[in-house]
Design a protein around this nucleic acid. Structure first.
Lengths: 245, 245
DNA sequence: GGAAATTTTGACCAGTTGGAAAAATGTTAG
DNA sequence: CTAACATTTTTCCAACTGGTCAAAATTTCC
């Protein structure tokens, strides 16, 4: 329901402060990390752990989550879990790395040769699908943002920024060609992120407000319809529309 | 740059489960809680603590925050802090209660006798101002939502829902009168929440993407302009606009 | 000034948390 | 079967956590 292997992007020189004694002997018998090709069984266990960790981290954030909790959800003992991931941070890093990749995929697919409205519409749709199908990933990301993104600043300041810059340029071109209302392309992108991820991150609120009646999967359909209308109307290249007050 | 006292709204009958032993003697010498009119000095100290707690809770969530952290930010010892607030949960509850009240004020002011676009525009503006002036409150709220709103379910399921229902009805009336594009009023409200709070909750991301150049307070001006355009255009009562793909 | 009340501090505690060590239990290839 | 390896469990620990308590320092009020 959520797995999907994503290539992990290492942050080479992070080097956090060490306060615990453990440091030297890393190639001991315990972790199966050293060079080995990583058997299929190991991969499976790691996936189980990552699954469980996603559950926990996405709800409580990094500091609010405990290894014990994750181990319990994963159905194994804490030391056993630590056999696969030498430390808590490592699990979290793996999740974040995997997340960033999938999370940006829809934006990467934004095609400058396509029709502006088709592109925007399908971008919205894909982001909304992700909010529906991977809410935990969305919340993990949101948690990270709320905490000031301590572990991924470089990622968002470099990779993400570059990607958005690129797509903003495309939007600007479309605006110049009169195929799209002239506005700030960055805030346009922000607004798509915000409106779609809202359905994952604030799910409880959305459900509560919509009431027991209307909160099956249908709410995503409604959201899609509404957002489509809002953005299609809102961004159509027309001078002015309403001028009251 | 952020202070501004907010009137606190008490939740009378929350009654959470007790698991710690402390329970009986509450009128002991320690806490200045019993009946006393609460001196001005006490209020000041409590405010200092709440300020500090807002800093910490809004970044790390409830579980991820420690009393020691809060005490340090507040510039006092942990036992001293605990003298004013007998337990961690109490501080958090106070913050949340205060928050909810201010947070919903703009929506309460939504006036059915006003002009639809004027009302929506000023609602957006006010929400954006709150995201700018009270980002920590916004993040505290977001953190609570991400965790499934365990401490405020009743609040959002009852009070919030009722308020939104009421305002949705107003929006529907306007739509019936042809003064507003016909759409789902609930999702319309969600989209305003999402787009405005985004600037508080995902502040790091917004700053990073906009780059060092354009991230002074100006970004809120730009956001306001963009959102105004999006919503004013997007919700104007016109049949169809673009029909490609 | 001094007794009473308030506020602050220092020492302490039981439970939790991240993690280490090593022994115990599989598993597998020769 | 058994040596080499992989996995799991048991035991343990030091630091941190929320919170208590009594004594000390300070303020308040007569």
């Amino acid at each position: 329901m959520s797995g999907k292997k994503l290539k992990a992007v290492e942050h080479p020189p992070v080097s956090a402060r060490r306060q615990h004694k453990a440091d030297a002997k890393a190639a001991a018998t315990h972790p199966p990390s050293r060079q080995r090709p990583l058997t299929r069984i190991q991969k499976e266990k790691q996936d189980i752990i990552l699954e469980a960790a996603l559950d926990v981290f996405s709800m409580h954030g990094f500091r609010g989550s405990t290894i014990d909790q994750i181990a319990e959800v994963a159905g194994m003992s804490k030391p056993n879990l630590l056999y696969y991931f030498p430390r808590k941070e490592e699990i979290h890093r793996r999740l974040i790395a995997a997340l960033l990749d999938t999370w940006l995929a829809p934006l990467r697919d934004f095609d400058e040769n396509g029709d502006p409205f088709t592109e925007i519409r399908s971008y919205i749709r894909r982001k909304l699908e992700m909010a529906r199908d991977f809410p935990r990933e969305s919340r993990l990301f949101a948690n990270e943002m709320l905490q000031g993104a301590p572990r991924i600043t470089e990622m968002i300041e470099i990779d993400l920024k570059a990607l958005v810059d690129e797509k903003a340029k495309i939007l600007l071109t479309w605006m110049d060609q009169g195929r799209l209302a002239r506005t700030d392309p960055y805030h346009l992108i922000f607004s798509i992120w915000a409106t779609t991820q809202h359905y994952a991150d604030f799910d409880v609120q959305v459900r509560a407000v919509l009431g027991k009646g209307r909160n099956g999967e249908g709410r995503f359909e409604d959201a899609a319809r509404y957002l489509e209308q809002l953005f299609m109307h809102g961004l159509s290249p027309k001078p002015r529309v309403n001028g009251s007050a």
